[in-house]
Design a protein around this nucleic acid. Structure first.
Lengths: 189, 189
DNA sequence: CTGATTATTTGATCCGGATCAATAATATAG
DNA sequence: CTATATTATTGATCCGGATCAAATAATCAG
């Protein structure tokens, strides 16, 4: 059950077997059906998820009720509403399973206490933060430098699996356009 | 010359006097006139800046030559093209002084070697990464959830000094709209 | 398998912000 | 202080993508 997570961690930092076991013991299994909401706007940020199988979608809910997708997380990636996770503020976004999923989660308190007990966990967290920063900044760049068509073409080039795997509706939302607009872009009109 | 920087650091981490001096000794003064480019797209990322006085603008250059501002950095803040700084890849954005500025910079190699020699520097970097993540993610949120008028109103509410201090042209670019559009928003039409 | 729900496509229209253009106001250099 | 360049405003027009609407296709629950 912890193989993928073990590989993810040991690919990034060096840990004694005991430390590794301590880290793994903090993670709990969560099996979730498709379209379950596992983190809700306004709640406290309590968990960070590792995706063993399936897919998560993290999205803001606008005042008019519409959604804006910040990110998808597929197999072998971590996902959390980091902004709230960091400073303990209330969640500003929902996290939902887009497919039936098998997740491992760690509680916020456990995550941060590992920073104090396992020195190399600080390095792990550093790498995690760096990656999260790079991903979000690249996404910010896309929005301020590209138009919808260009954003779609870039996504198709850099992440074709995502486009194939997810329904148009969600891809369109991720690109911050309507599904009608995406449909027309795809048909090349 | 290092007072502001010293305060910035010691507000965030605890350091022995010797360690503090070692950190400070890595920083060098750079006086730059208005509109100097101190980091250029395509170059290697070599420095991280601390703004003692003045203001920096970090912006992407689009294929058609137009610019898209990612961020402004005012007094008592750090600024670098972190994405390139982290992994040593070529800069994807320019950094320019928007006012005549007094900066302290640290070389990338020195910054990272401090991580190995001064344990609490890792904590400093962690805090830096967390803040940088929060800022950029909040900006990403603004772009995918707000329209131009709402973005301006939010900026005016959260950061009125920025709006007062910088020319409309730059504020408009930061909001990813034309200066004509910003002018009309301001006049409430 | 079948009916019902949900997703996709296509068409018609609309609208916010971009673009282009001209003028007015400011800032800057000499 | 003055000439010049830069920035801000205002008006006219345009256009990409949103919206609204309807038909079709694909999924899903029972």
């Amino acid at each position: 059950m912890h193989e993928q997570l073990t590989k993810f961690i040991t690919d990034r930092i060096q840990l004694s077997e005991a430390d590794l076991q301590q880290v793994l013991s903090c993670f709990h299994l969560l099996i979730a059906k498709k379209n379950e909401i596992i983190g809700r706007t306004g709640e406290l940020s309590r968990r960070m998820f590792f995706v063993n199988k399936g897919c998560l979608r993290v999205y803001y809910i606008k005042p008019d009720g519409r959604e804006a997708t910040r990110r998808f997380a597929f197999e072998n990636s971590f996902s959390t509403s980091l902004t709230s996770f960091i400073d303990g503020t209330l969640l500003k976004e929902d996290t939902q399973t887009v497919e039936s999923s098998e997740l491992l989660y760690i509680h916020r308190e456990d995550f941060y206490s590992l920073l104090n007990t396992i020195p190399s966990w600080e390095k792990f967290y550093r790498g995690f933060l760096e990656q999260a920063y790079i991903i979000n900044t690249s996404r910010l760049e896309d929005f301020i430098t590209l138009n919808p068509r260009e954003r779609y073409q870039l996504l198709l080039k850099e992440n074709p699996e995502m486009v194939l795997r997810l329904p148009n509706k969600l891809i369109a939302n991720y690109l911050n356009i309507t599904q009608e607009a995406l449909s027309r872009i795809k048909s090349g009109s």
